[in-house]
């Protein structure tokens, strides 16, 4: 079966996110002064060939832990869909 893993990787809440801060300042310059707390992360999608959704999730989880996210600085969450 083919599954797609949808992965969100975000900087840990307790860490300063300079990229988010810069984007936040630009949004304020646009006049959107009611916007706050911008944080910028990554969205990764990948197709996984696996027997079950659980097996696909296990593979995606391993990919996140070993390469896609560095858990000293980032957290991740993932969802699996068919196809």
């Amino acid at each position: 079966m083919k599954y797609t893993a949808h992965i969100n990787i975000m900087p840990l809440k307790e860490l300063l996110d300079p990229q988010g801060k810069a984007v936040s300042n630009s949004l304020h310059n646009l006049g959107l002064t009611n916007v706050q707390g911008v944080r910028v992360g990554k969205h990764v999608t990948m197709q996984v060939e696996a027997a079950t959704a659980d097996a696909a999730e296990k593979t995606a989880h391993e990919a996140c832990k070993k390469l896609l996210a560095n858990q000293v600085m980032e957290g991740f969450e993932l969802t699996i869909t068919e196809g």
Partner: peptide, 9 residues
């Protein structure tokens, strides 16, 4: 540890 983006961007 890890090296993060500079605080001043």
């Amino acid at each position: 540890g890890v090296l993060l983006q500079n605080d001043h961007q």
